[in-house]
């Protein structure tokens, strides 16, 4: 499915030995970085939104990105699967590798990048004309998968992974938008998982949800890290503290601090981080 485009160029540092799994899909070993970002800057027209960000985001971990609004955290997330290119007039500098492969190499198709790096949005957005089943399978179907047994298998698998299967298994033909808000968001997660991305980006996935639905999604994120690399943007620091392994703090387009979540919240090394996590600004 997710056919990585081969680039001859190998990064000199950050060797991420790629091991073939059963499906022949490259998977990084536990501790290797998923994303290796170096000196990455991004402009919207003349405005610099990201300034020299360097970060190594670990594979099969949950990395939270926090920071006050306008700090560039959503921009950074979107740069990870080149979604920012939907905005006309953007420009980047620096390098961004996923499992050793340059995502911005001229030969790389952004569509292929997005197959490898899935995304869940702030507001749940199931396609309104499609049933629950169609929503989950749309990514596979539109990419040419026709094998019905495989689709059926993937449907159940994705819905189970997003902890929605038991709630919807008896009415898969109902419209996706007939679900509750929290269920819709989990449906969107199932939809993103169905194409088997290597990374799942989440852009404030709970900000429109009530606490109960939020708890379910957070629990789900804990499950997902067993198989996927998860990067989550949140403005809720408790959420970052609860469900992430690493936390990155962005401020004014710069990466201020990045480290183990526990350490960041108990003993931040940077005064700005401390001010933010203790709620003194932002």
């Amino acid at each position: 499915m997710a056919t990585p485009v081969s680039t001859p160029e190998k990064p000199k540092t950050a060797p991420a030995p790629v091991q073939p799994e059963a499906g022949g899909k490259p998977v990084a070993p536990e501790e290797g970085p998923a994303f290796d970002v170096r000196d990455f800057s991004l402009w919207y027209g003349a405005r610099k939104a990201l300034d020299g960000v360097s970060i190594r985001i670990p594979a099969r971990r949950v990395t939270a990105i926090i920071g006050p609004s306008g700090c560039g955290k959503s921009t950074f997330l979107r740069a990870l699967n080149r979604m920012h290119e939907l905005t006309p007039g953007t420009r980047i500098e620096g390098s961004l590798h996923l499992f050793g492969e340059d995502l911005y190499a001229p030969s790389v198709d952004p569509v292929v990048v997005r197959r490898r790096v899935g995304m869940v949005f702030q507001k749940s957005n199931p396609f309104p004309t499609m049933s629950i089943e169609e929503n989950v399978l749309v990514g596979l179907r539109l990419n040419g998968v026709k094998d019905r047994a495989f689709l059926q298998h993937r449907l159940e698998q994705s819905l189970r992974m997003s902890a929605l299967w038991d709630e919807v298994k008896d009415h898969l033909k109902r419209p996706g938008i007939s679900l509750s808000g929290g269920q819709q968001q989990r449906l969107c997660i199932a939809r993103a998982l169905a194409v088997e991305p290597e990374v799942l980006l989440m852009d404030e996935p709970c900000s429109a949800l009530d606490p109960l639905a939020t708890a379910k999604i957070e629990e789900l994120i804990q499950q997902l890290r067993l198989r996927f690399t998860v990067v989550i943007v949140t403005h809720n620091m408790q959420q970052a503290a609860r469900c992430s392994d690493r936390t990155a703090f962005f401020y004014l387009g710069k990466l201020v601090e990045f480290g183990e979540t526990r350490g960041m919240f108990t003993n931040p090394s940077n005064p700005q981080t401390e001010a933010y996590v203790s709620g003194r600004f932002g």
Binding site: R116, M119, K123, V138, L142, C188, R191
Partner: peptide
């Protein structure tokens, strides 16, 4: 809504398929 187009793109669906199957259908 733009969010449907974004959701489609994030699934790695080609733009013309997003327009024909998702946007026009909606």
């Amino acid at each position: 809504p733009q969010s449907y187009r974004e959701a489609g793109l994030a699934l790695g669906i080609a733009r013309w398929k997003i327009i024909t199957v998702i946007v026009i259908k909606t």
